[in-house]
């Protein structure tokens, strides 16, 4: 029968979008965070251009507060795919006075990434930035286009988006404007895990269970690190944890888990009753936290 299964159809759609970026833009880049979604994007990009190499660089916006495992993984991936890596440093933005470090107990460099990201896009004159955003992640993202237009300030105007019809993508823009492109818009968290399993894709070890020094705050387990400020009442403990999403240490909630294989993780996610971003400290700031950050130019 001539019928694709749903993951095959999603893969085909994503490859079509990635090729469309390479065809319509002069200086595209792939935003690489070291998280599973961007790792899947690299895998899809490799498929899209095989046997040629991926025709755009990977851009990592480095908060300086990363899990060591993520950075090691990033470097080995870059080597494996013969990819070009560009690092935008949040520390540098702070040192230059472009960004101001947050103060207080919940200080995070997550929001500051927007400054560094927009500066990096401007510096390298990127006209399209491919990202791993998915519509099932968050309510503001449910309204996102595949080709998402950004004005010269990098801003998203959710009320005035271009209609996106069939699979015809309008990437036309003026000088200084750019696009964010989301090839895996239609994938769910479960799709990503099943695909990683099916394709046997390597992930950083922090996605699997490991022992780590952690502390508990407002319903979320956070990792201990020299730059993490703890309240006096908060205690360090060693627990078996894993990451469900990977971001900056300051906002990545860890789940208590003994899952050490993809099968385990899939089983765990199937049984989980909390969304993936439920563990993201950055989304807890307000009901419209993601919408506000996105409007300013966040990922």
């Amino acid at each position: 029968m001539h019928q694709l299964h749903h993951l095959q159809e999603l893969e085909s759609e994503a490859i079509f979008v990635i090729r469309e970026v390479a065809a319509q833009f002069e200086r595209p880049a792939l935003l690489f965070s070291g998280g599973k979604d961007s790792i899947v994007l690299v895998h899809l990009s490799q498929k899209a251009f095989w046997p040629a190499r991926i025709p755009f660089p990977l851009v990592h916006i480095d908060t300086g507060h990363n899990f060591v495992e993520t950075l090691q993984f990033r470097d080995s991936l870059v080597e494996k795919f013969h990819a070009r890596l560009i690092v935008g440093s949040v520390q540098e933005s702070i040192d230059n006075g472009r960004a101001v470090e947050e103060q207080g107990i919940n200080a995070s460099r997550n929001v500051l990434q927007t400054v560094t990201l927009l500066d990096t896009i401007e510096k390298y004159k990127f006209d399209a930035a491919i990202g791993g955003g998915r519509r099932d992640e968050e309510k503001a993202r449910a309204k996102e286009r595949f080709f998402s237009h950004r004005d010269e300030f990098g801003q998203w105007d959710p009320k005035n988006q271009r209609p996106e019809l069939w699979n015809i993508f309008n990437g036309k823009k003026r000088m200084g404007e750019h696009f964010r492109v989301f090839p895996i818009s239609n994938w769910t968290e479960m799709d990503i895990w099943q695909y990683i399993h099916q394709e046997n894709i390597d992930l950083p070890s922090i996605y699997y269970t490991h022992e780590r020094e952690v502390f508990y705050r407002d319903g979320v387990w956070l990792a201990c690190a020299p730059f993490m400020k703890m309240k006096e009442t908060e205690k360090t403990e060693v627990r078996k944890v894993r990451c469900r999403t990977v971001g900056d240490i300051s906002c990545t909630g860890l789940s208590l888990s003994t899952a050490n294989s993809l099968e385990d993780i899939i089983r765990e996610i199937a049984a989980t009753r909390v969304t993936e971003r439920g563990g993201r400290y950055d989304d807890k700031r307000s009901d419209a936290a993601m919408e506000d950050r996105k409007k300013e130019g966040y990922f």
């Binding site: 749903h6 519509r135 503001a140 449910a142 309204k143 239609n186 769910t188 009901d287 419209a288």
Partner: peptide, 28 residues
């Protein structure tokens, strides 16, 4: 509801995409 204005005004402004699955199919 997705966007802030939608929640405040109780209306929907733009096309939103939702996902769910059963053992037979995945739906968008």
């Amino acid at each position: 509801d997705g966007l802030r204005a939608e929640r405040e005004q109780g209306i929907t402004i733009d096309v939103a995409y939702r996902y769910f699955a059963t053992p037979q199919r995945k739906f968008i």
